[in-house]
Simulated scan of single mutants.
Amino acid sequence: MLTHCQVPLIARAVGERGLISQLLGPKYGAFIVNGKTEPGLPPLASIRQIYKLDCVNSHTKIFGVVSNPVGHSKVPLLVDDLSEFFRVYSCNDFAGFSVGLPHKETALACCHEVDPLALLIGAVNTIIRRPSDGLLIGYNTDCEASITAIEDAYRGSSVNGRPPNVSPISGKLFVLIGAGGAGRAMVFGARSRGARVVIFNRNFERAKALAEAVSGEAKPYDGFRPEKGMILANSSAIGMEPNEDQTSISKPSLASYELVFDAVYTPRNTRLLQEAAEVGAIVVSGVEMFIRQALGQFKLFTHGLAPEEFMRKVVLEHF
Rank of each mutant, 00 (worst) to 15 (best):
I121A: 10
T106C: 05
F85A: 09
L82D: 00
T106S: 12
T126A: 15
N92Q: 06
D80I: 13
V66R: 04
F86N: 03
I127K: 06
L77E: 01
V114D: 04
P102I: 00
V33F: 10
H72I: 05
R48V: 04
D54K: 12
P42W: 10
S46N: 08
V75H: 12
P42H: 11
L108D: 07
L41D: 07
I127T: 10
F85S: 04
D115R: 00
V124P: 14
V56Y: 06
H103G: 01
C55L: 15
P76V: 09
A45M: 08
T106W: 02
S46V: 08
S83I: 06
C55D: 13
T60P: 10
P76H: 08
G40V: 11
C110D: 02
E38F: 14
F31A: 14
V66F: 11
I50S: 05
V88N: 12
A109N: 11
I50M: 06
V99W: 05
L108E: 06
G35P: 10
F31D: 15
H59K: 14
F97I: 07
T106G: 00
R48L: 15
S98K: 07
P116C: 03
A118C: 00
A109S: 10
I62Q: 05
L120C: 13
N68Q: 09
Q49A: 11
S98E: 11
